[in-house]
């Protein structure tokens, strides 16, 4: 198999190599990069291109590693015992498989996305070391041993909010998704808006990269913001010449800058440059 760009999603050759290596060598692939560079999309596209099921485990600050394996619902068993249900005699009725368990028992080799792993507690990745390495775990309540029939393709994303432990990193491949250059970005836009006029696209991309170059922005606009913005430009029927001039006068700027301070900063800079003229 060979993962490559689809008509929905453009991958760089490096990322392509990384994904293929992870698939062939059956290692988890850790992806980092600016928000909005398509880390999560990658897993979706990969699953689609392999026609494999996608299991998405969204990590939150309250997530525990155990939840990915299974959860024992003691409370509902207690309640059932009160109501005299027959289910109560079999403990396995109350074991709920987590995402890892589901991934291990799929008929077809699935793609398991562990999204935003850095959101969790710092011990979270360490608790998953053995499970991701050996792809098996023990269920204490029933004495079962769950072992992967085939090793799932594991994609892990991180937004760099917390440092991940070394032992965990050693078990992964690592790829940092770079922000795409102008050509790649133009390709990406073509994929999403095949009918966009070249002149509008050129102007929009220039304005976009100028905006990204503004120093000290809290959140630089990324690919997904660009796509939203272009969609708005098309809907509002903005003419290319309206995209000329300073960054602050760009139409629908709110789609690119999500931060009030950033907007103020850009306006201030535009004001200064006007005064200089």
């Amino acid at each position: 198999m060979n993962f490559s760009s689809t008509d929905q999603y453009i991958v760089s050759p490096q990322l392509q190599l990384a994904v293929n290596a992870a698939v062939v060598l059956q290692k988890p692939l850790l992806l980092k990069g600016e928000p909005g560079t398509g880390k999560t999309r990658l897993a979706e596209e990969l699953a689609a291109s392999l026609q494999a099921p996608l299991l998405r485990w969204q990590i939150k600050s309250t997530s525990k590693a155990q939840q990915g394996l299974y959860e024992y619902d003691a409370v509902s068993r207690l309640r059932d015992s009160q109501l005299g249900s027959d289910k109560v005699h079999d403990i396995s009725n109350y074991i709920k498989p987590g995402k890892l368990w589901q991934a291990f028992t799929q008929d077809q080799r699935p793609v398991l996305l562990i999204d935003e792993i850095d959101k969790a507690d710092i011990e979270f990745p360490n608790d998953l070391l053995h499970e991701l390495d050996q792809m098996e775990f023990h269920v204490y309540e029933t004495g079962e041993q769950i072992k992967a029939q085939q090793r799932p393709i594991v994609i892990i994303t991180s937004n760099n909010e917390k440092e991940l432990p070394d032992a965990f990193l050693r078990r992964c491949f690592f790829h940092y998704i770079q922000f795409p250059d102008a050509d790649t970005l133009a390709q990406i836009v073509q994929v999403h808006f095949p009918n966009i006029k070249q002149r509008l696209l050129d102007k929009a991309l220039t304005a976009f990269f100028n905006l990204r170059d503004v120093a000290n922005l809290k959140k630089k606009p990324s690919t997904s913001e660009l796509l939203d913005w272009l969609k708005l430009l098309l809907v509002e029927n903005i003419a290319p010449h309206q995209l000329e001039g300073s960054a602050a006068s760009l139409p629908l700027l709110g789609a690119l800058l999500k931060n009030e301070q950033d907007t103020q900063l850009v306006e201030k800079l535009a004001f200064l440059s006007r005064r200089r003229d």
Binding site: P13, Q14, L17, A21, K32, R170, C172, F173, F174, H175
Partner: peptide, 14 residues
């Protein structure tokens, strides 16, 4: 290709 592969496997932090 070797460069990218080595980077992928040996370096774990951008």
């Amino acid at each position: 290709q070797f460069y990218h592969l080595a980077k992928l496997t040996l370096v774990k932090d951008e």
